[in-house]
């Protein structure tokens, strides 16, 4: 990959991240004039406690002073203490991060694989029965809020059959040994993963289908056919590698939606990750938590977009090999 492309993308990602950090300050310190007003326990605070809190939240002095304090604490990953648990936000987040990473990671992988497969096949055989069926199905999937999926799965699979637990990360208070505990956790992960995967499968499949259809008219497919290649070879060697290119960027952008989906999915299944933490922070008006979660979600999407740019660079020689 050309160095210039790489540097450009690194700088781009860094600038976006900085913009998010500044935006965060703007939103929580300037649009919201009195962040402490959202603290429920404020009426019980003594004057000293109140001042300590103001100091700890970096709300002293001019806006400019506050900004420098804010930037310094962001760089130290110090996001203050949660209004709710009064524990440091960073600790609260790192404790919940693995659960969410696992859920989002597995679902994203599944969504990309299955979504791209369906979209490829539907687009290649446009108008076929597979295309009509899968496109109708993906349209319905696309139109369904993922948390409603979760509720349906809970009601009709977990509730009726008892095959899967109705929520949580693991069976509370049980110890099945190392392997047993692992299986137990997987067991708890099945329904949330299915929910999140189904929730975003639709848009990925539609993106890839559109991309495939746009590729169908390309001249190099005629060349490939003229060379005597099988239909399946024309598709896998010529149509798919080209159709993937526009999909990569779009898929990266839709990753932001998957993050949103994790919030509601975790809520439905009381799966104790960052999504559930977000829902709790909303109901408790827990500003320090929300700020940090917002920064983290944005950083995750920016990172994902950056990776997508790298993948794009690897897939497209026109980007990879320009001096």
């Amino acid at each position: 990959m050309s160095r210039r492309y790489l540097i450009k993308k690194v700088i781009g990602a860094f600038l976006t991240l900085s913009a998010v950090v500044v935006f965060n300050f703007f939103l929580f310190r300037i649009v919201d004039r009195d962040p402490l007003a959202k603290y429920r326990g404020r009426s019980k605070l003594t004057i000293e406690q109140r001042e300590t809190m103001i100091r700890r939240m970096g709300l002293e002095g001019s806006k400019w002073d506050q900004f420098t304090v804010y930037i310094k604490s962001v760089l130290r990953l110090d996001f203050g203490r949660s209004f709710d648990s009064t524990q440091p936000v960073l600790g609260e987040i790192t404790a919940r991060l693995p659960a969410t990473l696992f859920l989002v990671g597995v679902s994203t992988l599944l969504t990309i694989c299955v979504g791209l497969y369906i979209g490829t096949k539907a687009g290649w055989r446009r108008g076929s029965r597979f295309d009509r069926t899968s496109t109708s199905a993906t349209m319905v999937l696309y139109s369904t809020p993922e948390f409603f999926f979760g509720m349906l799965l809970l009601a009709f699979i977990a509730g009726r059959t008892g095959w899967f637990p109705t929520g949580g990360l693991r069976d509370v208070g049980a110890d099945y040994g190392f392997v047993g505990n692992l299986i137990d956790r997987m067991h708890h992960l099945v329904l949330p993963t299915v929910t999140l995967t189904l929730g975003y499968l639709g848009s990925y499949a539609l993106i890839m289908r559109t991309s495939m259809i746009e590729t169908l008219g390309e001249d190099y497919l005629v060349t490939a056919r003229a060379k005597g290649l099988r239909d399946s070879e024309v598709m896998s060697r010529h149509a798919v590698p080209n159709a993937l290119l526009p999909s990569v960027s779009l898929i990266a952008i839709s990753f932001g939606f998957v993050i949103g989906g994790a919030i509601t999915t975790e809520t439905v299944f009381s799966y104790p990750g960052l999504g559930l933490a977000t829902a709790n922070a909303i109901s408790n008006n827990d500003l320090p938590m929300l700020q940090a979660l917002f920064l983290l979600a944005s950083a995750a999407v920016i990172l994902f977009n950056f990776i997508a740019d790298l993948v794009y660079g690897l897939l497209d020689p026109r980007v990879r090999r320009t001096e």
Partner: peptide, 23 residues
Amino acid sequence: RAVRWAQASIVFQGAQHVLNPVQ
């Protein structure tokens, strides 16, 4: 498929996208 290219091949117009850009 066996006849294509082996018995008759085509020299396409190079200005168009007849070559796969990523191969």
